[in-house]
Structure formats: C-alpha cells, structure tokens
Write a protein that binds this DNA or RNA. Structure first.
Length: 595
RNA sequence: CUGGGUGUAGCUCAGAUUGGUCAGAGCACGUGCUUCGGGUGCACGAUGUCGGGGGUUCGAAUCCUCCUACCCAGACCA
C-alpha cells in the first residue's frame, strides 16, 4: 500500500519533445522514466515496480526450467572478449573503460565469455553437466543510435541464461534445455499478458545454429516478421524463406537492347522515374566481395528493383563468406557501381551471378509475352532497356559454376509460404523481447573448454544462451497496450493493481472508507496505490488513466452515501459500477484473477 | 558513420532575417481567495550561466567560429 503523496510519480501534461513513440511518450508522461543521457534512463518508482514484477515472473520460470540464478560483473577485462574475437565483432558496440592502471575493460553487453570462463574453471567432467544458470542484470551496449526510450537504449536490463551440455540430443542434451527454455519463454510472455509471436531468426554476432525470437506484436515494432497462417511458420524477415517460385531464363526479346544515358542516377527510384520504368521491371544488381583470395572473387546478386537482397541468403547461395563490396574497391576493380547489370557475368570470368527466381524470368507469364527488363549497362551513367537473359548471356546461363538461381531476397507479404502449397505469407511488425540460441561449441572451442566423456575422450562443451530484455518488455507492453489517455497495463506488469482515488482526502468518511478498503485489499495480497493528493477530481482521473493501473476505485460522496465505491476497469468505457464497500475486495480479486 | 534538426524557466515553446525596453508566454511551482466527479477561475509571486569556449562590437540569446549535448532518418544491430 502506497500513498501517492509520499512517493515520486511525476506525471506531466506534455512529454519531452524528443519522445516520438507511444511507450516513450507515455512512460515519460506517466512518471515512469526520466532520461539521463542518450539511451540512458532512470527508472522511477512505478517503472521499477513493473520491472520487478516482470523479473519475478522470469525468475520463477527460469527456476522451473532448471536454471539457477547468479550474478556476474558488469566490468569485464577486455582479454575475455579478445579470446573469442568478439572484441572485434562487437567493435564500437562495446563500452570500453580504462582503469587507473590503464587496463582496458568492457562493460558487459552479454556474458557468454564470462560464464564460459567460470565453467571452464569449475567443470571437468561430463558428470557435472548439464547445468543452466541465469542472471538479471544491467547490460551495456554503445548503440550507434539509441532510440524510442526504453526500446533501444545503451544501458538496459536483461535476463541472460546459459546452458552447458555434452550432447545435443537425448537426456541432458542441448535440445532438451533449449526446448525447456523455449517453453519457459512462452509461459513468461503469456503470464505477462503480452500478445506475442515466436519466429525463426538469424543468430547474428552471438552465433550458433538455431535461434528463435520472441516478438511482441506492435505496429511500431522495429522488426518485420512474416507468418504463414496455415502452418504457423513465422520468421524474421532476415531469416524468412520463400516458397518455390517458377523461373526460366528463356523467352524472346521484345526489342533490341536500348542503351539510355542516365547521368549520375544510381538508384532504382531515380532511374525508374527517368526511364519511365516501374521498379518491378528493373533488375537490381548488387556486387558482393568474397575476399581477395576467393575464387570467384566477386558475387553479383540480382533481384527485382522492388525487392531487397538478403545478405545471409546470398551468402548461403554463394557458399562463401561474402560481404557487400566496398564501393571504392569495387570501382577500382572495374565495376560501374550504380550502373552494374547482370550482363557483367558475360564480360568477366571472376564473377558468380546469383539470380533470384523472380528476376530469372524470360517471359512475362501474366501478359503471355516476353518479359521487359531494364538494368544497369555496366558503364557509368548508363542503363539498358529490353534486357533479355538468353540473348545477353547465352549459354553462360546454363553453367552452374557461373550462374545460380536461388532465393536471395527478403520475403514480403504475399510471397508463397515455404511450408504450405498455395499459402501466402502475411506481414506483421514486432518488438524483439526475447532471443534464444543454440550456440554449439563456438565459445567453448574459442577458449578450449572441454570435458572428458564416458570413454575418457575430451569433448567440446556445447552451449545454449537465452536472452530476455526486461526493460524492453516494459516498453513493448506499453507499445502494445495503450490508448489516447495513457497506458493500459496487463495485471502482471502493472506497478500496482488498484488505484484508490479519494475525492476529498480531508473528508473523514472518505478517509475511513479508504483506510478500510485499502487495508482489506492489502490483506488479500493486492497492490494498492492511494491517490491522496489534494487535487481536483479531473486531475486525478487524468493521471489515473495515464498510469494505467488495471482497477480504479473512486471514493466520493455520492457513492459513499449509498455505502459504495465506484469500480472501474482501465480500458473499459463509461464511469464504472457502484460496488458495496463489503464487496469491493471480492470484486477486485475476481477481476484481477480473471484477466 | 552519413544526412537533417534542435539546445532560451521543471515541461512545451516564442524571441534570432533587422544586435540596443528581448529575459518572454503557456503549463507546472508557491501564497491567497474561488472551485470541488474528467487537467476550475482570479490575483499576486518565485524561477534562467539564453548548451559551452573564443571572436566581432560601445553593446550579443541574436552575427562569426570552434566545441558539446540531444533528437529524427538511413546504414548497422540482441
């Protein structure tokens, strides 16, 4: 039980000018957070209560999944990150601090290295595994661009769990724990009352084989996910496969190749507008660099002008570690960056051409005639119209060592589902609140962490790691659930369950009623906040809606004259119901349990 | 990192072209009265390194310059 007048809930009519997203605006206005620096926030009392509630549910589910809580330091000698190469991989994302002796430390962005170090020095035998541990802790990542309040900050609260195994399959194996963590995450987000999706994901710099992301469904989310409703397949756009698409390079040319002067127009939009060609009729050609020693040195990806190349997919298709070519280097190597076209493959033999099926079309099926394509002319400031695959590239198209057709683009809404014939993908936006990974031996091998198995053979230890953004979850919850008046908290995340708005704090009858009700509610284990401020009713009601507690009880003369208080569920329309004093606790308990 | 923008009262912002009654408004805050079920009304009041340094000038919030902080978009990213 807490009195508003005795705590810090600095609500405001206006949000700071820099707040753009709903969660940032509302958490600021409702007095939950205050910005201290770029991507650095203080959690005021209401926010801290919500965060503790989220943390507690996470704890319970982690313990239920067999993990033990521990706490590692935030200050970590840089050597640990150097050992795994993540010193470089993370680069500027690592906060670095030098101590008085000039030693370099990182502020922990995540703790694979530290936990692996601990286990390496504590575990010697397969008999001691598997073990899962977790911590809830402040993490530091020096983001290029923090944004949207708590959604992407440089200092944030995260739960990270790690598991260690001798095998992948079978009892005690990685898969078993991964599945248990997966289930625990589902329970956590269900208990928190969040609308979420689980999607297949790229593992990014953390590394590893399999990974899933947990996304709170919200329009303002940074991540795009694609869903096949008929199978339940869902994946991040970075990972999403696309179903089979028919393709063929064959088809007669519509007209002779027509070279067009397009001075300084390197982008699809500019060229399209200038040549009066729609992006779906253009071939976007991207040059990737496989490295100086690689053969072929260059990989050239082709997708339609309205589509995006997926770097991960083209890497898989090319079968080598490639990256988007450095513009200066590519130009020096003879590529007319901005004006490259598929015909480049016919001009030089150090190029592997990878074509997305949607672009590998000789005929326009819809129109029943040859396909019209525009592309770069492989000459600065020029593009071509009436590009025809067979005419321009000939038999080269049939040489699997030079030309491949593969899914290399990001999926879009309406694309065929990779899991069900005839089904299409639907697009949705989400906020990533959890991400779990099967790491394999990446970290253990990097530091030489192995144990002896039954046969006295040394085995690399297999790892999994499981992250959950606690502070981000609070923000995602607000993104997901609010209205024009303020936040609408799910019961599990709300800092308090019930707000008692006492109209006249000086009135003896009202005070007595408030004391009675709040006492009974507290005894029933319900968290109560009492708005005892000497403010006008309108101010209190506005603030009540703003901070978004699930239930508001209003103690005023009218209701009290009938021995009642007014009961209102946040988010419901109207003024609420009159409930007899004696029934209030029951009504609250019932409402909170039901939701 | 690239591009754009903004730093003036606790918050939202005006003032800047044209240097000099430009230290301002609203909200918030304090006092008094008023009002008392959806941000009440009136009066009075307190509040500033005009982001910082340097320069130009008799005089700078305003012009020049360097620095710095923050925001937005992109690229990147659990």
């Amino acid at each position: 039980m807490k009195r508003w007048s005795q705590t810090l809930i600095p609500t405001a009519r206006e949000a700071p000018a820099e707040a753009m997203t709903p969660s940032h605006i509302l958490l600021s206005r409702a007095g939950f957070i205050r910005q201290v620096g770029a991507g650095v926030y203080s959690y005021l009392p209401l926010a801290w209560r919500s965060l503790m509630k989220i943390s507690e549910i996470v704890r319970q589910e982690m313990e239920a999944a067999g993990a033990s809580e521990l706490l590692m330091p935030a200050v970590i000698p840089i050597e640990l990150y150097k050992a795994t190469g993540r010193d470089e991989a993370y680069g500027d994302l690592l906060f670095r601090v030098h101590d008085r002796h000039g030693r370099e430390n990182a502020l922990g962005p995540t703790h694979e290295e530290v936990i692996t170090d601990i286990f390496q020095h504590s575990i010697n035998s397969y008999k001691q595994l598997p073990v899962s541990v977790y911590q809830i802790q402040t993490k530091f990542r020096d983001e290029f661009r923090p944004r949207a309040g708590l959604l992407r900050c440089r200092e944030f609260i995260m739960k990270d769990a790690y598991s260690f195994h001798v095998t992948v399959d079978g009892p005690g194996g990685l898969d078993e724990t991964y599945d248990a963590q997966y289930a625990a995450y589902v329970r956590v987000f269900e208990r928190l009352g969040l609308d979420f999706s689980v999607v297949e994901a790229e593992s990014g710099p953390i590394g590893g084989s399999a990974s899933h992301e947990f996304m709170v469904n919200a329009e303002s989310g940074e991540d795009k996910i694609l869903i096949c409703d008929s199978t339940g397949y869902a994946a991040n756009v970075e990972k999403c496969e696309i179903g089979e698409r028919a393709w063929s390079f064959d088809g007669d040319a519509l007209a002779d190749l027509d070279k067009v002067h397009t001075p300084r127009m390197g982008s699809i939009e500019e060229v399209g507008k200038f040549m009066k060609v729609k992006p779906p009729n253009m071939l976007k050609t991207m040059v990737f660099d496989a490295g100086e020693d690689a053969s072929p040195r260059w990989v050239v990806g082709v997708v339609r002008g309205d589509q995006e190349v997926n770097e991960g997919k083209i890497r898989d298709a090319a079968g080598s570690a490639i990256a988007l070519a450095d513009e200066a280097q590519a130009k020096a190597a003879g590529f007319a960056i901005g004006f490259v076209g598929p015909a480049i493959a016919a001009q030089r033999d150090d190029v592997l051409l990878v074509v997305d099926p949607d672009s590998a079309q000789g005929t326009d099926a819809a129109k029943g005639k040859a396909m019209f394509w525009a592309s770069g002319a492989n000459e600065a400031d020029h593009h071509v119209k009436f590009f025809n695959w067979r005419r321009e590239l000939g038999a080269l198209l049939d040489d699997a060592n030079r030309v491949k057709v593969a899914d290399i683009r990001n999926a879009n809404a309406g694309d065929p589902s990779p899991r069900a014939e005839g089904a299409v993908l639907r697009e949705q936006r989400g906020i990533e609140v959890g991400h779990i990974f099967k790491l394999g031996c990446k970290y253990s091998d990097a530091v030489g962490f192995g144990v002896l198995d039954q046969d006295q053979k040394r085995q690399s230890v297999i790892m999994g790691c499981y992250g959950l953004g606690v502070s981000r979850t609070l923000a995602a919850c607000v993104e997901m659930s609010h209205d024009d008046d303020g936040i609408i908290f799910p019961v599990a995340i709300a800092p308090y369950h019930v707000l008692i708005t006492i109209m006249k704090p000086d009135d003896r009858a009202q005070r007595d009623a408030c004391r009675q009700i709040s006492g009974e509610l507290a005894d029933a284990g319900i968290d109560v906040l009492i708005d005892d401020r000497d403010e006008r009713p309108g101010v209190k009601f506005k603030d009540a809606d703003l901070i978004g507690l699930p239930i508001r009880l209003t103690i005023g003369d009218k209701a009290l004259a009938e021995g009642s208080v007014e009961f209102k569920r946040r988010g419901s329309a109207g003024k609420g119901d009159l409930v007899a004093l004696g029934d209030v606790v029951g009504r609250c308990r019932e409402t909170l349990e039901r939701s």
